[in-house]
Design a protein around this nucleic acid. Structure first.
Lengths: 152, 152
DNA sequence: AATAAACCTCAAGTACACTTGAGAGCGAAT
DNA sequence: ATTCGCTCTCAAGTGTACTTGAGGTTTATT
């Protein structure tokens, strides 16, 4: 029994993080440049990561599958506590945020689908009147242009 | 009464198509370069469009809201008859194709959403075991990496 | 100490869907 | 005939999310 009874389990290099998370080293560099993950450096300027980076990267990939852009993921990750390692409740809060977003997108797509059959064969495809075409209607795109993957 | 009893309603210039369809002139040029629409030229090399270009553009914009990439839209549009002006049935066939795609995407997102609550807060975010992370699972992404907007 | 694998930075390239700008020609009205 | 707006082509730029490559350093192993 001593001061190192439970050792902190050595920190991780980029390569290790890459292997264990399934993303490329270049992507990790990229995420760091964009502020989604952080590292500190060895004397020789190499990156070292704490264990929680693995969960961070996992969450990043999941959010991407949900269609959330990196900038939005970055903002969400910034709401995590910096002082302590984020716990299950912290992560759950993130997921709730995205879940709402996802719900909205699913609703949007469902309405779009339901309009599709009625509208596309008929003559109504006018920007003003057709629910499929009007970008400002209750389907609620944020502005002009297609924004299927709108951040929440 | 004569040879022009019902006039074909003058053809449209790019500017007119742009105004009436709500897309930029540059986008119309782009669509033409990509093979989504066609035009013929005046003696002075200016584009002239038949009326059905308006519906084509409308369909392009709708498909984009559904998340279909231009290349896929182009392929779909190529299945339209070239000889005659496409009729309601032709357009409906297109919409059916995309509707199936859309249904699949909605299912996918819904499953992802349902996994979200269970998985993100817990410790299971491993690439091998977690349904949210495993890219080859029954959620059925086509390959590695996020493909939320997979063409059908 | 030497060697090889891993790591570093910075620049440039890729794919998608366009937009912007330059420089020049076309078309309708006066 | 002139003028002004519309149109032409081609090249380059935008934003997202990375990857690739060059040239050089660090770390781990022998």
């Amino acid at each position: 029994m001593g001061h190192d009874a439970r050792r902190p389990r050595r920190e991780l290099s980029v390569g290790e993080v890459a292997r264990r998370s399934g993303v490329a080293v270049s992507a990790l560099h990229f995420y760091e440049a964009k502020g989604l993950i952080t590292s500190h450096r060895t004397g020789g300027n190499q990156r070292r990561y704490g264990r929680d980076v693995l969960r961070r990267v996992a969450v990043i990939k999941v959010a991407q599958r949900l269609g959330v852009p990196l900038a939005t993921i970055r903002d969400a990750l910034k709401t995590l506590p910096e002082a302590r390692t984020p716990n299950a409740a912290d992560w759950r809060k993130l997921s709730e945020h995205w879940r709402a977003d996802l719900d909205a997108r699913i609703r949007k797509l469902t309405q779009l689908r339901d309009s599709l059959d009625e509208c596309i064969g008929c003559g109504c495809l006018s920007v003003e009147t057709c629910p499929l075409r009007n970008p400002y209607d209750e389907l609620g795109e944020a502005g002009p242009g297609p924004h299927l993957l709108d951040p929440g």
